[in-house]
Design a protein around this nucleic acid. Structure first.
Lengths: 357, 357
DNA sequence: TTTGATTGGGTAAACGGTTTCCGACAGGAA
DNA sequence: TTCCTGTCGGAAACCGTTTACCCAATCAAA
């Protein structure tokens, strides 16, 4: 009743019904040239025996794995993006419907990342990749394009015309964020930015600048800092900006982690966030609603992004022209309590800080 | 130079060298009966052609996938454990060394979870499973044991004697936590617990009770609440406990998310956390250091847990008796600023709250 | 020189599916 | 009856490995 390894094979089913295994295969793959009588008998046997085709054997013959790959960048010591849980959840849900699976790996350096992709391709473990944390000039994209291997990027590079991607309209979002802050009455708005090699950090900075121009405010490079995307980076960035003789009254942070760090510093300096200093983040992390005061932020649904990207990737694998699968999504403002009209002018802020430091 | 599908096969290598493909295979699998001269020539060709064996074909023949599976439980709408990112990171790093991969899926219900395991087994996509969020009576464990399919559980069930697991010594940790709080001078200590079907929640409650007894404090069921493991649950649990006529002066929360919610409620009620009310969490979430005041918590290295579990699972797959692979790890207290001697007696606390509500 | 053991490596059968090719049979038209 | 067409399903090749089995050559011992 079972194959040599203990599981039911197509051969078992065929013998049980008294047909050739090719016939069973045809039924299972919905070929039309099988009489409905035979079809019924086979389906019944399949159910009875609990037969499920071996995906390994099927893959070997078809040359397709029905598996997608994602290689997550991880920092030296600690540090995976917390957003990845949700992202993976979105992908996995979509794949569950599409009857495919997801292979997850990590890589701790750019080099390791490329090697990992190469290994997974050579060993034929996956049919395509999902790329996260896209860099301005991303070697993975060059690599995969050269190999003609399917992929979808979460976030664009400097030249996004030739491949498939899903991205948030970072620039537009930051334009609208600056407009929002300016409308509250702020005149000096600081940017706590991220590393220049991450493309979204650049897009957000560009949006920040364009927003200032549209509001008729001066673009002052002194009001822009770049920090690693952690809470510590937020503390550091806020410290540098508030230490200026004309400090900003609002800090626009490119991620929530940065914003949470910046809030921490303000508390330590005795400043009231949302009154003395406005702080806005970006990510919509759930925890943002529970810090003090609750953080105003921009949010994208990471989960839905994951699902959409998975679908796009499958299209590309099945032959759709990659450039046909590009999507720009909008983030929306979640207004909580860390923003408000400036209670102090930059000069007053400076005086207070001078006293407290 | 390449097989019909564009990638280099063992046949290509064999032809290039002028030997049979069996010979190439033997070299690659470190058989000893090949002359070193032939071996060299083959290895050289392998390198030149960039040959990597197809894991699909290899799996088919060997009956082994070199792939581990993990099915993450996810809530209805939103909500994966944020700790899963780190956990997966730990697993992936270990597997990278061991030349294996990780398949990740999600399941949104108990039923779906079982079906998913069954599908992955029947389709022969993985060699073993890592189970997370173990329940007191976990159907997955029964299921996998009946199928004789390898797995390692992260967390124990009520009867942990017959399978492989890795767990934190939850009970002992909570005993020591209660001792710590009592030593600060607290006499009424509340527990913000989790759902009863999660085993770690039960273990932590047991530790909480034993700790009270050891300190000579009364065990009062009114001081125990059970909430979903989210920030909202924390708000709710704290509200119920602080609403008692003899409210606790300390809240011991079974997770950091609960603790963060509880802190939020205290702030809203005008209570100073760490003075009027002591709050301690458990998980060591990075964000805990950035809430106000920084959260005192117990921590386990999730990443290291992932790595160890991966290794245990591989041992079990390779034939080690599961009961031989069981490990109890200790969590350690990370003292920050949300705990301290009680500034108010329960009576005073009650009066203040009566006024404010 | 014959024998027996050893070494090196070729041959071919699996592994469990999919798919191509082809033959048997039935039914309808001539 | 003969021929043609269409339907159904069997046989076998194939996907890329691993491995059991076998044979040839070499060499030491008898």
């Amino acid at each position: 009743m079972t194959g040599s390894r203990g599981s039911v094979t197509i051969e078992d089913v065929a013998r049980h019904v008294g047909v050739a295994k090719g016939t069973v295969s045809r039924v299972l793959n919905n070929y039309t040239d099988i009489s409905s009588e035979t079809r019924e008998r086979i389906l019944k046997a399949v159910k009875e025996l609990g037969y499920q085709p071996s995906s390994t054997a099927r893959s070997l013959k078809r040359g397709r794995q029905d598996t997608l790959g994602i290689v997550m960048p991880v920092g030296r010591g600690r540090g995976v993006d917390p957003f990845l849980s949700e992202f993976i959840d979105g992908i996995a849900r979509a794949l569950d419907d599409l009857d495919r699976d997801l292979l997850v790996t990590t890589a701790h350096s750019g080099r390791h990342m490329l090697e990992t992709h190469e290994r997974l391709i050579a060993r034929r473990k996956v049919d395509g990749f999902i790329l996260t944390r896209t860099e301005v000039n991303d070697p993975r994209i060059e690599f995969l394009q050269a190999r003609r291997f399917p992929f979808v990027a979460h976030g664009r590079t400097s030249d996004p015309s030739t491949y498939a991607w899903y991205d948030i309209d970072n620039e537009e979002t930051f334009v609208s964020g600056v407009k929002h802050i300016a409308a509250l009455g702020h005149r000096r708005i600081g940017l706590v930015g991220g590393p220049r090699d991450l493309n979204f950090a650049c897009q957000r900075r560009a949006g920040y600048r364009r927003g200032l121009e549209l509001c008729g405010l001066e673009v002052d490079p002194a009001l822009e800092v770049e920090e690693p995307l952690t809470e510590v980076g937020g503390v550091e960035g806020a410290r540098r900006l508030l230490g200026l003789h004309m400090p900003p009254t609002a800090l626009f942070c490119v991620t929530d982690a940065l914003a949470i760090g910046a809030m921490r510093l303000c508390r330590d300096l005795g400043l009231r966030v949302g009154e003395d200093v406005t702080i806005i983040g970006y990510d919509g992390l759930p925890v943002g609603a529970y810090v003090d005061p609750p953080l105003t932020t921009f949010s994208q649904s990471t989960q839905s992004a994951g699902g959409q990207i998975a679908r796009m990737l499958i299209d590309v694998i099945e032959g759709t022209e990659p450039a046909q699968r590009q999507k720009l999504a909008q983030a929306e403002l979640i207004r909580r309590a860390s923003d408000g009209p400036p209670a102090k002018t930059p000069e007053e802020l400076n005086q207070v800080l001078r006293r407290s430091v």
